[in-house]
Design a protein around this nucleic acid. Structure first.
Length: 884
RNA sequence: GCCGCGGUGGCGGAAUUGGCAUACGCGACGGACUUAAAAUCCGUUGGGGAUUAUCCCUGUGUGGGUUCAAGUCCCACCCGCGGCACCA
């Protein structure tokens, strides 16, 4: 058969669309399967072969699942708000809206070329007001529940992108987008309390079928650490009760309570608020203020590259260790971070690297309190004061046995922590505490191209809300939790959504930290929906991540032309997503944000599953042929359009899947296409006309099994290899029946849909292949009554309307387990574990028979002469091993 | 520094979870077809040795160990990749 792939690609793509082969039905009686791709961000770059890898994989799975009788939801859309689209628009001087439209068109055309089985009737776009209406709606709900707050803390600011960023958007000290060095800048920000969900985000990871690496990244990002808060009394050196009659305590956080008897000093972050409280007691306060100022002036980069720890002793005060009453000095130092734990630490120089360095520099006491379990010897003070490198094993010791620790001496670290916390709690001097690394989510960008935030600021309402705070019951207005938490900020009524992004000519970002929207008077100035007075709109926009937090719901709710988020019946049918595929770069952002967003919707009782992405698999990058990342900058991008033009879409699909393990990073090799091309040509040249060959039948059933399982397990490369093995076998035997050939074509169809549809339809016309019975999966799930009515409906439908029945509406082949087992096998004969011979035996051969047969073989006979057989090991179906 | 993943021919990789190491594909080499080349088809292809149809030794980052048997399990180390990082 001569295959003109360009012709057949177009032909079958049109057929599939015309006859709606891949349109998904809601509430179908079939079991459902929801397979989701991370939707692309249509920047100006266009798609390269790497982007397509994941889309090809999900398409293969979607097609197989459909053939297996599932109702498959496999949708696609566009994530189009955010910086890259806006920067592209600025560069080419077109409005972002137009730029996005244009880029979507380019992307979609590229995507269509690989022949994906998307249900395009469910296509979505995050910048569509009908879509972002519900992004805004959810934000309002978050606000109303008190999960949004305004903050004026210095924020990460990218001077090149001219916007504030969340911690997650940084790559070290640089902007993840443009690579510019991040500054810190005081900014008004909107922040979402994602930290309130930290524990749940952590707990529910255990129910997910995700790769360990991704789970681990999420765990690290959430960063739970369990420890204790300890109260140290702060005293003035002159008088034990510093001025006041009440004692003053400072809390420190530690995960190593067992080392507290080794505490030599305390350190506060320079930003700690206790320092101003102690102003009158600190004798060197001017010096302290100077140090705090130098810390503030340091950039983060300076702070990081400094090798030596700096700090300053707070003179005139001391702290008291609650366990032994020991008085220790107090420092401030910038290696203690204000936003983690209590913003203060106890320092144990003997068992912590940083504390050790610091103690050596400032000549502080080093006390050893933990020794390895089996060690008896206690170090002398000279030994302890040697350099760090000579004390490595002490400094880096983890858990051990306590020494020099009063009543706790002799306990194991773990036991000691338990007892010590009990002691603290009993004496009200501290408690168990848990801290997380994850920060609240900075949810505002000072840019134009994003969802407008549906809040207004009203000065009158501010007064009213504040008066309520002080319990002055003067207000007649009712405020929600968010409005009370953020006096003056008022939620838009739901009826006013979507709050549309104003169309403007100038949308350049500003240097001032204000959004370009702030300059649009007509838009900014509005009425307060609460009191009717004058109000100003929030001018920041949402970050790029907002729209992708719930798009898997949008595909579902796109039942009709309008969206509706309250769609619980449909959610119950379709959720959770059975399979989600995308890049690992989203492990700690999108996948955290989206999980959080979903949990919030779960709390609103909009969705009934706790986790939306049941199974997640990440796509390994396709590197350029030079082994580098593909990038326009390196000029090493492989354009899929070129490959499709030369070899066809099916060849591209096979090549991407045959490269190697799906999740692995592998350089693209153009020469691989040669083998793929040969394979395709051999398939279409195969002429089935002979009778069934039992050898081929056997191989075919093995192939059915292997391909089916491999696709389910993301082992596309070995599935293809098995298909090649089958083809090699069929060619070698020169015998393959038409039935066998067509089963092979079905197995191949998910990989090379155009080619297989072409072959399938050709044979249907030639030989009138009888229409196949309803799916195996379907039959399992129907009662007799249902089945009969379905049969009649189906036949009516077929005879009247449908002239075209796609191969993808046929059954997926089933293998016969009996045919997989070989009758004869090759038994390996080993002597002392080394392969010496091989013999073909019947599968039913018993151990005793095999022993005899093996010993009769000439070669084995020779080798066994004069040797004593100590032991014979027989592994059925595999080997026999003589130990001599 | 911490956490995670990995290291197999000239190259991408495979190996039913402890049982024939290198499937499948590329490349290379030899042959057939051809005036010739490409394409196609057939054969060979980890390394070394030999008494060369047969056979032996060796071989999965390095060194040890467990086992009848190790790419696979255990211990120590080296290298590469990814993530996090003054996180108390």
């Amino acid at each position: 058969m001569e295959i003109n792939f360009q012709k057949i690609e177009k032909k079958w793509q049109r057929h599939w669309e015309k006859y709606r082969v891949f349109r998904t039905k809601n509430f179908s009686k079939k079991p459902k399967f929801y397979v989701l791709d991370m939707f692309p961000y249509p920047s100006g770059e266009g798609l390269h072969v790497g982007h397509l890898k994941g889309y090809i994989a999900t398409d293969i799975i979607a097609r197989m699942k459909k053939m297996q009788g599932f109702e498959v939801l496999h949708p696609m859309g566009w994530d189009a708000f955010g910086l890259p689209a806006e920067n592209y628009a600025l560069q080419y001087k077109i409005h972002p809206e137009k730029a996005v439209k244009k880029n979507i068109k380019i992307y979609k055309n590229q995507l269509l070329k690989i022949g994906p089985s998307y249900d395009w009737s469910r296509e979505i776009n995050t910048t569509d007001p009908e879509y972002y209406k519900w992004t805004q709606w959810t934000f309002l709900e978050l606000f109303k529940k008190g999960l949004v707050y305004i903050s004026f803390e210095p924020a990460y600011w990218c001077p090149s992108c001219k916007t504030g960023l969340a911690l997650e958007d940084l790559e070290g000290r640089n902007c993840e987008r443009c690579g510019a060095l991040i500054e810190k800048k005081p900014l008004r920000q909107l922040v979402i309390k994602i930290t309130e969900y930290a524990q749940r985000l952590l707990n529910d990871l255990k129910d997910l079928d995700w790769e360990d690496s991704i789970i681990e990244m999420q765990k690290n990002w959430i960063g739970r650490s369990v420890g204790s808060l300890i109260k140290f009394e702060i005293q003035s050196i002159k008088s034990k009760t510093p001025g006041k009659s009440q004692k003053l305590f400072a809390e420190v956080f530690t995960t190593r309570l067992d080392t507290i008897f080794g505490c030599a000093y305390l350190v506060f972050a320079p930003e700690h608020k206790i320092i101003s409280e102690l102003k009158s007691q600190i004798s060197n306060f001017t010096e302290v203020e100077k140090y705090i100022k130098t810390v503030k002036d340091k950039t983060d980069l300076q702070r990081e590259t400094e090798k030596e720890k700096t700090g300053l002793k707070l003179k005139g005060i001391k702290a008291v260790n609650p366990f032994n009453g020991k008085e220790v000095p107090v420092f401030i130092a910038d290696y203690v971070l204000p936003f983690y734990g209590a913003g203060a630490i106890m320092a144990v120089p003997c068992h912590d690297k940083r504390d050790f360095e610091f103690a050596q520099k400032y000549n502080l006491e080093i006390i050893e309190v933990i020794i390895p379990k089996n060690q008896k010897k206690i170090s002398s003070s000279e030994e302890l004061n040697k350099s760090e490198s000579e004390n490595l094993e002490k400094v880096f010791i983890k858990d051990g046995v306590l020494i020099n620790s009063g009543q706790f001496t002799g306990l194991d670290s773990e036991k000691a922590r338990e007892k010590m916390v009990q002691w603290l709690e009993k004496n009200k001097l501290g408690r168990k505490a848990v801290y997380y690394k994850i920060r609240d989510w900075v949810f505002a960008r000072q840019r134009y191209w994003g969802e407008p935030i549906p809040l207004v600021f009203c000065a009158e309402c501010k007064k009213q809300a504040e008066s309520l705070k002080f319990k002055v019951q003067s207000s007649k207005l009712r405020f929600n939790k968010g409005e009370l938490l953020n006096p003056g900020w008022i939620a838009l009524p739901v009826e006013d959504l979507p709050l549309r992004l104003p169309k403007v000519r100038y949308y350049q970002p500003t240097d001032t930290g204000e959004s370009p929207l702030a300059g649009i008077k007509k838009w900014v100035e509005t009425k307060c929906p609460k009191c009717g007075g004058p109000a100003k709109r929030e001018t920041n926009t949402m970050p790029q991540w907002a729209g992708s937090c719930w798009y898997y719901l949008a595909y579902i709710m796109r039942d009709n032309s309008k969206f509706k988020i309250q769609n619980s019946k449909l959610y119950r049918y379709w959720l959770p997503v059975d399979l989600y595929v995308g890049g690992a770069e989203h492990a700690t952002r999108h996948l955290i944000y989206a999980r959080f967003w979903h949990k919030f919707l779960y709390d609103l009782k909009l969705v009934s599953v706790k986790e939306q992405f049941k199974k997640f698999r990440h796509v390994g990058l396709v590197l350029a042929e030079d082994g580098k990342k593909m990038s326009k900058r390196w000029k090493n991008v492989i354009n899929p359009d070129e490959i499709i033009k030369h070899y066809g879409a099916d060849a591209l699909r096979l090549a991407e899947m045959f490269m190697g393990p799906f999740s692995q990073e592998i350089p693209w090799q153009s020469k691989n296409l040669i083998g793929i091309k040969r394979f395709i040509e051999r398939i279409s040249n195969l002429k089935p006309k002979f009778q069934k060959n039992p050898k081929i039948e056997n191989l075919l059933h093995q192939t059915i099994k292997k391909v089916t399982e491999d696709i389910d397990n993301f082992k596309f490369n070995t599935a293809i290899s098995q298909l090649m093995i089958f083809l090699n076998g069929a060619e070698k035997e020169k015998q393959i029946s038409q039935k066998q050939y067509l089963i092979f074509i079905k197995l191949l169809a998910p990989f090379t849909p155009h080619l297989c549809e072409e072959i399938w339809q050709n044979y249907r016309q030639q030989d009138r292949v009888p229409p196949s019975s309803p799916n195996f999966w379907l039959r399992q799930n129907l009662s007799d009554l249902d089945r009969n009515s379905l049969y009649s409906k189906l036949s009516k439908f077929r005879s009247k309307k449908k002239k075209f029945k796609s191969i993808f509406e046929e059954d997926w082949p089933q293998y016969n387990p009996k045919l997989i087992k070989k009758e004869k096998i090759n038994l390996i004969i080993q002597i002392n574990g080394r392969k010496r011979d091989i013999m073909e035996i019947d599968i039913s051969t018993t151990e005793a028979e095999a022993k005899q047969l093996a010993q009769k073989k000439e070669k084995i006979k020779k080798l066994l002469i004069g040797k004593e057989i100590k032991k014979i090991i027989f592994v059925a179906g595999r080997l026999i091993n003589f130990v001599i």
